[in-house]
């Protein structure tokens, strides 16, 4: 039964390869996107951290995204 499932009545090579290529390609795009996002998050957090107290206060007041980002980033680490 398992052998039948793997061989797919002679079409196993084509079926399994199609699914494997699809999930491998999706996995690779996910990994690349995730890595890039984390890199930008880390760099942005580092840049915010390097600002003086007054500068950071000004940035967080003026940029809603920066304040939301910092809140979620601090929660995640």
């Amino acid at each position: 039964m398992i052998q039948n499932f793997i061989s797919m009545n002679g079409y196993g090579f084509f079926v399994w390869l199609s699914f494997a290529i699809t999930f491998l390609a999706c996995g690779m795009l996910y990994y690349k996107t995730y890595k890039t996002l984390k890199k930008y998050e880390k760099d942005f957090a580092k840049e915010l951290d390097q600002l003086s107290e007054a500068e950071r206060k000004l940035v967080l007041e003026k940029s809603k995204v920066a304040s939301q980002f910092l809140a979620s980033y601090n929660k995640s680490i």
């Binding site: 996910y30 996107t33 995730y34 996002l37 930008y40 942005f44 940029s63 995204v65």
Partner: peptide, 29 residues
């Protein structure tokens, strides 16, 4: 399932783009 995957990648990429722009704008503020 594949649409959910697309939504996930789109959201992650969009978030990256927003952070990239905000990072650039930080100096201007």
């Amino acid at each position: 399932v594949l649409l959910l995957y697309c939504a996930l990648i789109l959201l992650m990429k969009y978030k990256t783009e927003i952070i990239r722009i905000k990072k650039k704008n930080i100096k201007r503020i």
